[in-house]
Write a protein that binds this DNA or RNA. Structure first.
Lengths: 156, 156
DNA sequence: ATGCAATCGTTTTATTTGCAAGCAGTATAC
DNA sequence: GTATACTGCTTGCAAATAAAACGATTGCAT
């Protein structure tokens, strides 16, 4: 386990540690579907809302546009997603999940959820709810903070 | 809304989101010192105990030896750390922080702590404590789980 | 209408990281 | 004491990602 004895802020360190541990398990679970965590997240994102532009997805996944371009290249080659031209804007591409993509997504999600649920049951029902509440608050705050930072950067 | 069927396990998703957001902020804070998070962690680790071998640091930072080799190459080129030959084992290199490295580390740590604290204060004192408690429990459970998995894999 | 700035996606380039192979030095078994 | 295995580090290679430059399109202000 990573030891940042020097780092002052315990919650920050813990989130990092927990993330690393969860991500490791996640990788194992997703490997059966031949998906990286990022690819999986893109499929989830796409399933939530079809027809998003690459830029939208990039913003949600917090990675740059060129990364999304190549990620979509891979997934399109595998036949999991498709680029559709945007009728209103000839620059833009709308991403949709193919039937095969939906199937792979569903299978990967099942494995993912099974693996995650088993591990999350280290906390009882009530603790999970409390954790969720706290993380939701933190996430929304951090997202707002990020938006601020970006606005500040944009000015200079 | 069919979102409920689709969404992956919520606490897991939240931990992922929060981690990504925190890491992003970390990067911004450290960018002022021209350090990546990994480089920063190496400096912290080194400050904790001088004269560690590359392999030791690799184990603490959870990355492979070749990564440490190149990481140290960069930091040595910048004049922040130095490789000293180990008197007892001619294969080994002892890492020490130069005065300049110590200065950069101190400056980066200050920025890092300020940034993290500000963001963590999105939760009040009591919430931070509760979050810490839950994450600690989760982390220890996950670590034990991982140890089990590895023991199982080692048998086959 | 026209020109200029912003946006969307791709390409090109550079950086970071892991994995596998290898080299030199050390330790162990015989 | 020699062969063998192991350890510490480096190097070569490949994959993933970010950064910067670019072409095409759009929108806005004159």
């Amino acid at each position: 386990m990573k030891q940042h004895n020097v780092r002052s802020h315990l919650p920050h360190q813990l989130i990092h540690d927990v993330y690393v541990l969860l991500d490791d398990g996640d990788r194992r679970a997703l490997a059966h579907s031949n998906l990286s965590p990022l690819e999986f997240n893109l499929l989830l994102q796409l399933d939530l809302e079809q027809g998003q532009r690459l830029t939208d997805v990039g913003a949600k996944l917090l990675c740059v546009k060129s990364t999304i371009t190549r990620l979509v290249d891979r997934l399109e080659r595998e036949g999991l997603v498709r680029r559709n031209p945007d009728p209103d804007d000839r620059r833009a591409q709308r991403l949709i999940l193919t039937p095969r993509g939906a199937a792979v997504r569903a299978e990967a999600l099942a494995m993912h959820n099974a693996a995650v649920e088993r591990r999350m049951n280290l906390l009882d029902e009530q603790e999970q709810e409390e954790l969720t509440r706290l993380l939701l608050k933190l996430r929304d705050g951090l997202a707002a903070d990020l938006a601020n930072q970006q606005a500040i950067e944009a000015e200079s």
